[in-house]
């Protein structure tokens, strides 16, 4: 076979000035713009306290959205994360109250989250329910169980040791931000430096081709829904620790912002592209927008509307950017 003298141009391209890099740069620019705008609007914006506060809010959103990001890259969708968070929060809060052991709460939250994710995986793989329907059903089931379990009560008042996870500081930085950085780094390494991570992209880009390349797609999918559940459980712990209370209304309002964060970050709904760093940027942008609304004295009742609008616009932008890439 001809090798050296083949006409095929073997040019070394600058390796990673791919669309991914462009997307990240665009989002960093957007964050900078909003930040400049906000600091001109309000003198308190650019203070360390306010910035850390924004990052802390972003970190909670990021935790919920991180598992979802993995699932979306793999071509699925997890609508149950919010309700899963609710259920984990309620059960773990009750466990802490019953045993006065934070570790019991941690175990219950993470275990419950993984279990819900596992159920999603089984419903999709075994019962062959489409992902959006399975996880949408799970949303209502988890929510229903949480409401029934709490029976109208609010569990509140936890030990300072537990609340440290939500409101504590380490080296002057809020603990949730540390959690975000650690999980984010783990996730980035998982996606880019493990074979399973690479398989996630292949699954999302073309599931049939992934199956026929010998990738155990069904098991990988279950794993990802379990990770998504695990992240919901982790987020639940930090939420409870931060709010110092648990009630069955806390998780559901997070679903739409989480999806918005993933899409605004630039992970494509069509699967096969995206990443966790982008979701981190997306979560930051979303938090900044909420912060801006507050600074502009817009009533909090507008937040869901704005989030909905952002989701619709982000879907449109995603289609504009990624549809050409499909065919």
């Amino acid at each position: 076979m001809t090798t050296m003298d083949s006409p095929a141009p073997v040019i070394r391209r600058p390796q990673q000035l791919a669309p991914g890099t462009v997307a990240v740069v665009v989002r960093l620019g957007l964050i900078a713009c909003i930040a400049v705008l906000l600091s001109s609007l309000s003198p308190t914006f650019a203070t360390t306290d306010n910035l850390l506060n924004i990052l802390r809010q972003a970190s909670l959103l990021f935790l919920v959205a991180s598992g979802l990001t993995l699932v979306i890259i793999a071509g699925g969708l997890d609508l149950s994360i919010g309700a899963n968070l609710t259920l984990c929060a309620c059960l773990s809060a009750a466990a802490i109250k019953a045993t006065s052991q934070p570790t019991a709460g941690i175990a219950v939250a993470l275990g419950c989250g993984v279990l819900v994710g596992l159920t999603n995986g089984v419903l999709i793989n075994r019962v062959k329910i489409p992902p959006f329907l399975a996880t949408f059903g799970m949303l209502w089931v988890a929510q229903g169980i949480a409401y029934w379990f709490m029976a109208g009560q609010v569990v509140y008042g936890f030990s300072p040791a537990f609340r440290f996870f939500g409101s504590g500081f380490w080296l002057g930085v809020p603990v949730p931000i540390w959690v975000m950085l650690v999980t984010g780094a783990c996730g980035v390494i998982f996606l880019s430096r493990t074979t399973i991570g690479r398989e996630v992209y292949l699954m999302g880009a073309n599931e049939a081709a992934a199956v026929l390349s010998g990738i155990p797609v069904a098991r990988r999918r279950t794993l990802l829904y379990m990770v998504s559940g695990l992240m919901a459980g982790l987020a639940a712990l930090i939420y409870v620790a931060r709010l110092n209370a648990a009630e069955p209304g806390i998780g559901e309002p997070l679903l739409l912002p989480a999806i918005a964060a993933v899409l605004v970050g630039g992970t494509s709904l069509f699967g096969g592209s995206g990443g966790l760093f982008r979701t981190l940027l997306g979560a930051t942008i979303l938090t900044l927008i909420v912060n801006a609304l507050n600074l502009l004295n817009v009533s909090a009742t507008w937040h869901p509307f704005v989030t909905g609008a952002i989701v619709v616009l982000a879907v449109l932008a995603d289609a504009a950017v990624n549809r050409g890439a499909r065919r």
Binding site: F132, L256, H303, P304, F305, A309, V315
Partner: peptide, 23 residues
Amino acid sequence: YLGLPAFVVTLGTMGLCEGLSLV
């Protein structure tokens, strides 16, 4: 017309409608 996935599009409009009712 644009061929976008229905579940996400309608999730977005769900947010819009809920938000508008709230407002």
